[in-house]
Amino acid sequence: MEALIQLGIFALLLGLGFFFGRRAEAKHYQSIFAREDELRQIVVSTDRFPPIEFTNHNAQLVSGNVVISVDYFKRVSAGLRALVGGRIRSYETLLDRARREALLRMQEQARAAGADAIINTKFETSRISGNSNKGVASIEVLAYGTALSPKNKR
């Protein structure tokens, strides 16, 4: 009986994770696409030196961060995948979403400062160990760079 209850809880968590996780991911991707279109005029690059046309701009540090976690279903499916090896799709989308979200937040900060380009963009990813030490808990992605804004605007 007890084993049955435990199995039931496991199935419930799996189901909840599957439905809510899938919905959350779809919604997040939609918002990412919309905001990426909106912020396209702010050029982000990894150049270490400002391009020649930006030599008369103000420089300023901007950053964006996000902490994101996978749902229960994906964690279980990734655990199964780890037995046979190969690509873990569920974690790929997690990292992709986190990076793009961090980038967008950095761009939003740059737009608020009136900048039109960000150079020397760096990413920093770290794992946040949750209250339990099993599996991947959640990850933090930080994106930072130097925003260049025209002098007359400010």
Binding site: G21, A24, H28, I68, S69, D71, Y72, G130
Partner: peptide
């Protein structure tokens, strides 16, 4: 709260 989010997935606003 983060423990709950570990089931449903998504952003952990408090940690961010």
């Amino acid at each position: 709260m983060a423990g709950l989010k570990n089931i449903f997935g998504g952003e952990l606003g408090g940690y961010t």
